[in-house]
Amino acid sequence: MFNIGDSIAYPMHGAGVVTEIEEKEVLGEICRYYHVSLPYSKMHVMVPVDNSDKVGVRAIICKEDIQGVLNVLGDESDKMSNNWNRRYRENTEKLRTGDIYEVAGVVRNLVRSDRIKKLSTGEKKLLGNAKQILESELVLAGGLSLDEADSLVESNI
């Protein structure tokens, strides 16, 4: 259970802050929802409290864990499939886990691939989404600005 003011990570959307916990009646049942403000994407989402574990909502990393994320960015690239469709699906699945280290690995691999051979439009969009997820958590965990988080990510790949 999260409280108002807690910073959380929401897979496929990034990190945000719980701004409200609300009860609503849906199909005759009373359900509780987290209202989450996602500052990086300028979105506001409602997450059912009862399903938050199932969808992978978790507390963000602490400041001390940032170095581990930077280490992943600096590690060797993973071997990726030559088939862009398979590569896209594998990377999307990694993002869906909500694991910050998996997300960092996707960003690292796609940035390096893009430097060698330009990514397809779909993979560029996936890279943008992965960077948004990663950088939004770094912003909240490290008290960084968006520009600082982006520079930190780019300089460690």
Rank of each mutant, 00 (worst) to 15 (best):
Q67W: 09
Y88I: 11
V45C: 10
Y101K: 14
A59N: 10
R58M: 02
N71S: 14
I60F: 05
D65C: 08
K63W: 09
N82S: 13
K42Y: 06
N82G: 15
D53G: 09
I61K: 04
W84V: 12
W84A: 13
E76W: 07
N82I: 08
I61A: 06
T97V: 09
V57H: 01
R96N: 04
G68W: 02
G74L: 02
L70A: 10
L95G: 06
E64G: 06
A59H: 13
K79L: 10
Q67E: 15
D99K: 02
K42L: 03
S52V: 07
G98H: 02
E90M: 14
Q67A: 11
S52L: 06
K79N: 10
A59G: 07
Y88S: 01
K63Y: 10
E93L: 13
R96Y: 07
R87H: 08
E64A: 11
P48F: 00
V55P: 01
T97F: 11
H44L: 12
M80D: 14
Y101C: 11
R89S: 15
V55W: 01
N91G: 05
D99N: 15
V69A: 04
M46K: 02
T92A: 12
C62D: 15
K54Y: 06
K79I: 14
A59Q: 13
G68K: 13
S77L: 01
L95Q: 07
E76R: 12
H44Y: 15
H44V: 08
G98W: 02
I100E: 02
D99A: 08
K79D: 10
G98S: 05
D50Q: 13
M43F: 07
R58C: 01
K42F: 03
K63V: 11
W84P: 15
T92H: 09
E64F: 04
V69M: 01
R58G: 00
Y88K: 05
D53F: 12
V49W: 14
E93F: 06
E102W: 10
K54V: 10
N82A: 12
E102Q: 14
E102L: 09
S81K: 11
V57N: 03
R87L: 10
N71P: 12
G98F: 00
A59T: 01
M46H: 02
G105V: 03
W84L: 13
K63A: 13
N71W: 13
N71Y: 13
G56L: 03
P48M: 04
K94D: 04
N85M: 14
N71Q: 15
I100Q: 05
V72L: 10
V72Q: 08
D75E: 12
N71F: 12
R87A: 07
V49L: 09
D53Y: 12
N51S: 05
S41D: 06
E76Q: 13
A104T: 03
T92V: 15
N71H: 14
D53H: 11
I100H: 04
E76H: 12
R89L: 15
R58I: 01
S41W: 14
R87P: 00
L73E: 03
M46I: 06
E102V: 09
L95N: 07
S77G: 07
Q67C: 08
I66L: 08
N71E: 15
L73A: 08
N51K: 05
K94A: 03
M43W: 06
E64H: 06
S77C: 07
E102P: 09
L95P: 00
K42S: 02
N82P: 05
I66K: 07
I61F: 07
G105W: 01
E90C: 11
